[in-house]
Design a protein around this nucleic acid. Structure first.
Lengths: 168, 168
DNA sequence: TTGAACTTTCAAAAGAAAATGAAAGAGGCG
DNA sequence: CGCCTCTTTCATTTTCTTTTGAAAGTTCAA
């Protein structure tokens, strides 16, 4: 398989994976493109490679930067902004985990805690079923929260451990 | 908080969580409703509780059954079909993990394996960057695959372990 | 201060996904 | 069979997302 073809296929697969995960297709494609490129790209490069408009490019790049998955890079002597993606997939995974936890898990845990306090008699089977469901989900959510925290922490300490060695 | 209110809030939160995960809102809401109800509900009950049409109810219930999250229940002497959801959230989680792995991870692993075989000289930095990215992602995907498998297995053996005790 | 080179915004258009409801189908009972 | 009850399908409509591109904004060198 030729490089160009392989690249195109990767971008398209990563795009549809992203779509299934509630991330928009273009955002995932830009990320894929940047992961696969050795050097930073400009907005125009991205527009050209993916055939998308300037506005679309700008919006999605900005969102990727918010997620911490892409960085702005300034090339000395150039006016344009360039962009690169983190290439270490483990770091990508922990960034995503951290971000989704913050956006999704934290709020639902808050809600679940509130829902625990529903009034009513445990002899009423509706109340009983509700309480038990919520309690189970709540316990699960807390465990998931812990698991994500240790995943993110593990990665951080691996990162700093490795980084530190370089400066010793 | 009153039960009805708490129920409504749970259904709505679960629905938007689902939406962020690429599962459609109604499907997640039906699932939430069934998780919280002590007894099986009919299609008409679901329609009434969630204010959705018959067709919509039917489609989404069917999809939940495909995912293994909801079961059809026949109540003796009744013509209608009734539905219940698995109430053990760990089982729900493993069902979802199993299903998403099958639908998403397995295909991307297949693609990644193919993309490893891109032609070209490693001295070309484009080729090099591409290969390295794909290799990293591929390794990650395989590790994720293993992790999911052991999660699913762990749950299965816990389940059979517990089940077996009941019949000893 | 001007204007060239870029970036950002946002209203409108296009596109995708989900919901509706009427019609067709399935199964069973007398 | 003919009727009744319930389920499934699917063309159409509605709603929600994404994309576009032109206009406004920013920055900086001359």
């Amino acid at each position: 398989m030729k490089l160009a073809e392989a690249k195109a296929q990767f971008i398209q697969s990563w795009g549809s994976l992203g779509a299934q995960w509630g991330i928009n297709r273009t955002m995932a494609q830009i990320h894929a493109l940047l992961m696969v490129m050795p050097d930073p790209l400009s907005a125009d490069d991205i527009m050209a490679e993916l055939n998308i408009s300037r506005g679309n490019t700008n919006m999605n790049v900005r969102e990727l930067i918010n997620w911490g998955l892409v960085d702005r890079v300034l090339i000395p002597g150039e006016r344009k902004e360039y962009f690169t993606a983190e290439k270490d997939i483990w770091k990508v995974a922990t960034e995503i985990a951290r971000e989704r936890k913050r956006r999704e898990l934290d709020p639902i845990i808050k809600t679940l805690n509130q829902l625990q306090e529903v009034e009513g008699d445990m002899k009423d089977k509706h109340v009983k079923a509700f309480r038990e469901s919520i309690q189970g989900i709540n316990k699960f959510a807390h465990q998931t929260d812990k698991a994500i925290n240790s995943f993110v922490k593990a990665e951080e300490s691996w990162f700093y451990g490795t980084l530190m060695k370089l400066f010793k």
